[in-house]
Simulated scan of single mutants.
Amino acid sequence: MEKAAEQNLIDPAHKKNFDFIDAIRCLAMIGIVMEHSVYNGTYIFEGFPPKHMLYICLIQISKFGTIAFFVLAGFLLGDKFTSYSSWQYFKRRLSSTFMPWLIWSLVLLVAILAQRYIALHKSGDEFHFVPELISKIELVYLYTNYWFIINFMFCIAILLCFKKYLYSFWLGFSLLVFSLIYSINVYFEWFIPSHTIAIFGFIFYLWLGAICNHYWNQLEQFFRKTNILIFVCLFLITFIWAVFDIARLMNARSVDPYNTLRLSNIFYSLATLALLLKIRNFNFTKIIKPRQTTFGIYLIHYIFVVSLLPEIFRPFHLVPFQEMSVPFMLLYIFIRFIIVYGLSLATIWLLNKTKLRWIVAL
């Protein structure tokens, strides 16, 4: 019985038939991997020629993943907040995610330290271990995808502190205010605007997911009755807004013009999520087995992006990304994505056949 309870905690969709949520989480993860596969730098183009706008569009179209993940996680976790004591829930949640996250983040840390050591050795410069270690720890845990788990557990802890008021719209409004402070700061830069250190910036979206779960019957009726063209139009309008918002921030030499918490990207992410909830039927994702693979792909894929892709393409002596022709650029991005996603998925499937399957949170 204890084992069954733990399974339901780790996998809330197991108890209710929310398979479509797993499918959408799979698509959100594909978006995150795509974004990391496309990205080759921020200010790498001069002006805004068609090639640069295409590059921006490719990044933006996959930019819904992070906010969607918080909303969907809140949806799946919503009723569990009230089914367990705060400490019991947090302890179980932490035990299922912390060790896999720690192991893979340490793998990335070692990999980038090794890369740095080799680069300095080739150039004849001295490698100072302690300063390099401190610098790379900051990089891995604040500015790579591994920030997500730290932020996610913090968000859960905050909501558990207020679980008595979980379905209070006043709580939601307060959390929205915190999130909007970060969003507005993207444009004014009162403090460092990186979304990866916006520790209070994403709690609202976890709360929003819990609210969606709470009122799902009403929401489901809304999605069924509303014409899909409305969702498509909202998707297109917010996408165009988000693309030109990036361009405007670039003109202003923003520190982080692709910031996830841009107002335009928030509306785009929610519009995309609404469209996916309207469509709902993504049976092809069953091949990937998203319930067993999604979190593992998140943990593993960035290691391949940072450590493996440069080594794979280094022998080919490719021209700089911004100088590639459009067809070659698209082919290059597609190959990068296939390598990263394919290897991540293969790694998880292989680990799933061994006693080490727990390190991908299965």
Rank of each mutant, 00 (worst) to 15 (best):
M1I: 13
E2W: 15
A4R: 15
A4K: 15
A5M: 08
A13T: 15
K16T: 14
K16C: 04
F18V: 13
C26A: 15
L27F: 04
I32K: 09
H36F: 04
S37Q: 11
Y39W: 14
E46T: 13
K51H: 12
C57A: 15
L58Q: 09
I61S: 07
K63A: 12
T66E: 02
T66W: 06
I67H: 08
L76M: 06
K80C: 01
K80I: 03
T82V: 10
S86Y: 04
W87G: 09
W87K: 13
Q88T: 15
F90S: 02
K91I: 13
T97W: 12
M99P: 09
S105R: 01
L108T: 03
L108E: 07
L108Q: 05
L109D: 10
A111W: 14
I112K: 09
Q115P: 08
R116F: 10
Y117F: 15
I118N: 05
L120E: 14
K122S: 14
G124D: 10
H128M: 13
H128K: 13
E132F: 06
L133D: 03
K136Q: 15
I137K: 12
Y141N: 07
M153V: 11
M153E: 11
F154P: 09
C155A: 12
L159Q: 05
K163Y: 00
K164V: 10
K164S: 08
Y165R: 14
Y167G: 06
G172K: 05
F173Y: 14
F173V: 13
L176N: 00
F178Q: 00
F178E: 01
S179E: 06
L180M: 05
Y182L: 07
N185M: 06
Y187G: 03
E189F: 05
I192A: 13
I197A: 02
I203H: 06
I203R: 08
F204Q: 04
Y205T: 05
W207F: 08
W207T: 02
Y215T: 05
W216Y: 12
Q218D: 13
L219V: 01
E220A: 00
Q221I: 12
R224L: 12
F231L: 07
C233I: 14
C233A: 14
F235C: 06
I240W: 02
I240L: 04
W241F: 01
I246T: 15
R248G: 10
P257R: 01
S264W: 03
S264Q: 02
S269C: 07
L270T: 03
L277I: 12
R280S: 11
F282V: 07
T294E: 00
L299S: 06
Y302N: 10
I303H: 15
V306A: 14
S307T: 11
L308N: 09
L309Y: 06
I312F: 11
P320C: 06
P320T: 03
Q322W: 08
M324E: 02
M324S: 07
V326G: 10
P327T: 04
L330G: 04
Y332Q: 03
R336A: 10
I338L: 05
L345G: 08
W349R: 13
K355D: 09
L356M: 12
R357N: 13
W358M: 09
I359L: 11
L362T: 04
